[in-house]
């Protein structure tokens, strides 16, 4: 007897059934796309927003706009774009950016920052979690659009073309945002060094 888990997911058939308001098909579609959506949501999660709430919002938007899906791009790409734009909308809604201070860093975060700011030693691999926390704090200082670009470029290592496809922004705009974001990060590091010396 063939196992259901081994069968490839029939996305086209499932979408057709969802269009006919089949609740079981809608549930299957959510379960199938959840890993994709939650990865995007987790990497661009704004402060004080629960990942599950954001994922739910993405899926509700997906169902609402399902009639607009023409099949020009693969369905998961289309859903990824909805997820990215939903995250950016939430990031934009957060007007205030938390202040970044050396004193607020944990010991391991301060060590990682110290290692990153000096060329002498690389950041230890076991400090990856502290580095992630620190990166989140630094990125929170940037404008939402710049945050998104720098996350996709430097953390997820996506190409400019892939980012353009995901966000709908043109490639020049993405390059400008990346340049602006890196310059701001550079300034932040310099400021931190100056304060630390003082």
């Amino acid at each position: 007897m063939p196992d259901d888990a081994d069968q490839p997911f029939d996305l086209a058939g499932c979408l057709e059934r969802v269009r006919q308001r089949d609740q079981a098909a809608a549930r299957e579609l959510v379960e199938h796309l959840y890993p994709l959506v939650i990865r995007i949501v987790r990497s661009h999660l704004p402060r004080r927003v629960a990942e599950e709430d954001l994922a739910q919002e993405v899926f509700l938007k997906m169902f609402t706009r399902l009639g607009q899906y023409q099949g020009a791009v693969p369905f998961p790409h289309w859903v990824s774009r909805i997820a990215v734009t939903t995250c950016i909308d939430h990031l934009r809604a957060q007007k205030r950016r938390p202040e970044f201070r050396w004193a607020d860093l944990s010991e391991s975060e301060a060590d990682v920052l110290d290692a990153a700011m000096t060329n002498e030693n690389d950041v230890a691999a076991n400090d990856a979690l502290a580095a992630t926390e620190l990166v989140q704090k630094l990125l929170a200082q940037l404008k939402p659009d710049d945050q998104l670009v720098i996350r996709l470029l430097d953390l997820e290592q996506k190409t400019i073309a892939e980012i353009a496809q995901l966000t709908g922004w043109n490639q020049s705009l993405i390059k400008v945002r990346a340049f602006r974001a890196r310059r701001k990060l550079q300034k932040l590091f310099q400021e931190l060094q100056r304060k630390e010396r003082a």
């Binding site: 990682v112 920052l113 290692a115 990153a116 700011m117 000096t118 060329n119 690389d122 950041v123 230890a124 691999a125 400090d127 990856a128 580095a131 992630t132 620190l134 990166v135 630094l138 430097d154 953390l155 890196r182 990060l185 550079q186 300034k187 590091f189 310099q190 060094q193």
Partner: peptide, 13 residues
């Protein structure tokens, strides 16, 4: 080297 600091930090993250 503030320019490379971000790249090193991102690589660690």
């Amino acid at each position: 080297d503030p320019r490379g600091a971000w790249q090193r930090l991102a690589a660690a993250a």
